[in-house]
């Protein structure tokens, strides 16, 4: 489904060169639910942006659904995003001026789908997340969990093969987080491949496979048997506890 080979991403400024990803390799199979974890600054976001084709990369190869999407034009990558990828963000990122139906409809608009078909799919997607009765509400009238469910409906409306979730429960309390997680699992069971970036080890454990990114490389200690541990150096094997501590420290710094 998703195959990244030897991907590197270098950010250059006048003063420094930052290697956000280096020789990054990852295979995700059709129908998998993969959780990606890692400390702040490890390259999670860069990975997500590249996987979602929001950003290009410096070296390497990226196959999505068997198609090389490494060097697509802006137009083509927008079309791929539109048809194959669904996004779920930590901040929900609903468009505040549009009501729920209109929000969910956005990807379908860009695909040029006819009005009747759009309506059918929007209804279906909102039904699926349990908000079928609230089509005309504005995002601000909803709770965080409900907003995230709308975001999920929006991702589903395009019937993507592949769902990218970035801290989908980060802004939610634990009850809502559980509901959202259950929804994602249900979607996964229906056949959609999901890659979820998260801080939360508990959430990560619910996924079929865990991948940890450290220093821009995959450090895969979940039992997947795919033999992708190459490039893992001894000194990079951080304990989960140290990882969490580092993460916490980084978070505290960020909000200061």
């Amino acid at each position: 489904m998703l195959s990244m080979r030897n991907i590197s991403k270098v950010f250059k400024t006048d003063l420094v060169e930052t290697h956000a990803l280096r020789d990054f390799n990852l295979e995700v199979n059709e129908g998998e639910f993969v959780a990606v974890t890692g400390p702040s600054g490890s390259g999670k976001t860069t990975f997500l942006n590249i996987a979602g084709m929001l950003e290009g990369f410096t070296h390497g190869e990226y196959l999505l659904d068997g198609v090389d999407v490494s060097n697509l034009s802006d137009n083509k990558s927008a079309a791929v995003r539109n048809e194959k990828i669904g996004f779920i963000f930590q901040g929900f990122n609903l468009i505040p001026d549009l009501n729920l139906a209109e929000n969910v409809e956005v990807p379908l608009r860009y695909r040029g789908i006819k009005a009747a078909e759009r309506r059918r799919r929007v209804e279906q997607a909102l039904e699926q997340v349990g908000l079928g009765a609230r089509m005309k509400h504005l995002p601000t009238q909803l709770s965080g969990g409900q907003q995230q469910r709308v975001a999920i409906a929006r991702a589903l409306a395009g019937e993507p093969r592949f769902l990218l979730a970035d801290e989908p429960t980060g802004n939610l309390d634990s009850l809502m987080a559980r509901q959202v997680m259950e929804l994602l699992e249900k979607i996964n069971q229906a056949g959609t491949t999901i890659v979820m970036v998260t801080h939360d080890p508990e959430l990560a454990r619910r996924a079929q496979r865990n991948i940890q990114i450290v220093d821009g490389q995959v450090c895969d200690f979940a039992a997947s048997g795919l033999g992708q541990q190459q490039g893992l150096r001894q000194d990079q094997e951080l304990t989960p506890l140290a990882d969490l501590a580092a993460d916490f420290a980084a978070k505290a710094k960020a909000s200061a």
């Binding site: 979602g52 929001l54 802006d74 137009n75 927008a78 079309a79 791929v80 995003r81 539109n82 048809e83 990828i85 996004f87 990122n93 609903l94 468009i95 505040p96 956005v106 990807p107 860009y110 695909r111 929006r154 395009g158």
Partner: peptide, 16 residues
């Protein structure tokens, strides 16, 4: 710009 970010992620091309 944030809204544009969302639209772009969802599959709107620059031209759109």
């Amino acid at each position: 710009a944030p809204e544009v970010g969302v639209r772009r992620a969802i599959g709107a091309s620059r031209a759109q």
